[in-house]
Amino acid sequence: MKLMEEEEKKITEEEEEQVWWSWGAGTEGQLGTGRFQDEHLPQLLPSLSSSGPISLLSCGGAHVIALTTSGKVLTWGRGTSGQLGHGDLVNSLQPKPLEVFKSTVVTHVSAGWNHSGFVSDTGCLFTCGDGSFGQLGHCDYKSHSFPVKVSYFASKHVEQIACGMRHSLVLLKGHSRDQVYGFGSGKRGQLGICKDKIGSINVPQVTLGLGHVKITSICANGDHSAALSADGNLYIWGRGFSGTSNDYYPQCLTSSLSFTQAALGWNHALGLTGDGEVHMLGGDRHGELSKSQKMTPVKHLSEGSKEAIMEKIPGIDMIKVLEIAAGAEHSALITENGLTMTWGWGEHGQLGLGNTSDQSNPQMVRLGHICTNRHTTFKVYCGSGFTFAVRKDRLPSRT
């Protein structure tokens, strides 16, 4: 039985070919190009394309974590806090396998500003990197250059980890209550563990106000946190958007929209609906939100929900969007036709347009592809000032 499963897995992996590109900030090796330099145009990454099918990529402050379909992990980029997990404090120009997980199947990963999180198929959580704010969850403020198991969750089954700038979120599997935990910096309310301002917490604490809903995914970036529920509601907490006050526990965005994906930047949030429409909250500093758009002010309600309208992104009317991603202050999306589009802050070339200009509206990135094959899919991922994109070609099944 085991041999049969391994053979089926091998066939599945061989049926998918991937082509990867990266661009933007690269001075710490985070682009995986083998060079310590920024790139203003998309660069092909043969080394990543040949490393086997990748199911998930997570881009942090200046490092990247890749998870293969077989549950193996590769890391590269900035490693000065031990966030790459290789036991040293050096940068890596190329994707490097994480040997500590050689005998472990990893199912989820997340890259924060200077720390990393890994979840195994048995529900164990491992973290490494900067721990000076308690964001590793080890009940101290120590940093680690190797992934260390978080003992607090030893009797629980972790499903997802989301790493922000100085904080982390955890989603447990199969729990109707006490399902989301936060630890690390809570100065802006990003942990969601109390209704008042706090400092740092090095022991995981239950995030308040989510016990009555089923959460399916979590995300964190900067000093923000967010969660999506099974019924399509978006909950946000942490630093206030567009100059509004901080939220110290989750607030539900009251809206008629049903969201399937969410992404967070440092000053903006994106939401993707089931109809393929992209909506945004906040983010008018570098054009993440169109300068012509006017945001509806956020109002706090007595019952703990938030009345806010996430405005639809301009310039892409009648275009269905399948994927979204957010960096520090730039954004990206994939259309149903396989087009990659970016907008926002462009100082490091992270928009992939061949220049360092900011863009208020989505612009097409030329990767030389148009999706005309129903067996071809695309995804995009954003780090703080850089971007990755992948084309996945599903090959005919072997008989």
Rank of each mutant, 00 (worst) to 15 (best):
F388R: 03
S176D: 13
V390M: 09
F36N: 08
V213W: 00
N202M: 08
G71N: 06
G129D: 03
C139Q: 15
K72H: 12
V64L: 06
G77C: 06
E5Q: 12
P46M: 01
S116I: 02
A220Q: 02
A162S: 12
Q205F: 02
A230I: 09
C59L: 15
P250T: 04
L333E: 01
V278Q: 06
L31C: 08
K306M: 15
I161V: 15
S292M: 10
V180R: 02
F118Q: 03
S145A: 15
L228C: 09
Q43A: 14
D275V: 00
L98C: 09
T207D: 07
L45R: 03
Q293E: 12
L333T: 02
T296C: 12
T80M: 07
G77Y: 01
A66V: 03
A389D: 05
Q43I: 14
K173C: 02
D223F: 06
S292N: 15
D121I: 08
H375P: 00
P97Q: 05
L270D: 01
Q160E: 13
C382Y: 00
L339H: 09
M1D: 11
G137T: 07
L210W: 03
L253C: 06
W20C: 02
E6C: 08
K10C: 08
C59E: 01
N373F: 13
L191K: 06
Q205K: 15
L210G: 03
N355L: 08
S145Y: 08
H330K: 06
Q251E: 07
H224N: 14
S47K: 12
M165V: 05
L228G: 05
Q43E: 12
R188N: 11
W266Y: 10
K306R: 14
K312V: 14
I54Y: 00
T107K: 15
Q359I: 10
S103R: 14
F183H: 05
D317N: 12
T377N: 11
E16N: 11
H224D: 03
F388L: 14
P42F: 03
H167Y: 05
C128Q: 04
L74M: 13
G385W: 04
L353I: 11
A62G: 12
P396K: 11
D223Q: 10
F126D: 02
G211K: 05
V119M: 09
L264V: 04
P95I: 01
N114A: 08
K96C: 14
L136P: 01
G344R: 03
V278F: 07
L322Q: 10
E15L: 14
G129R: 01
R166L: 08
V170H: 00
R239Q: 13
S58K: 01
D178N: 15
S155G: 07
K299A: 13
R394T: 14
D393M: 11
L125C: 05
G87E: 09
I370K: 13
K379I: 00
C124W: 08
I370V: 12
A308T: 02
V150A: 07
H369M: 13
T372Q: 10
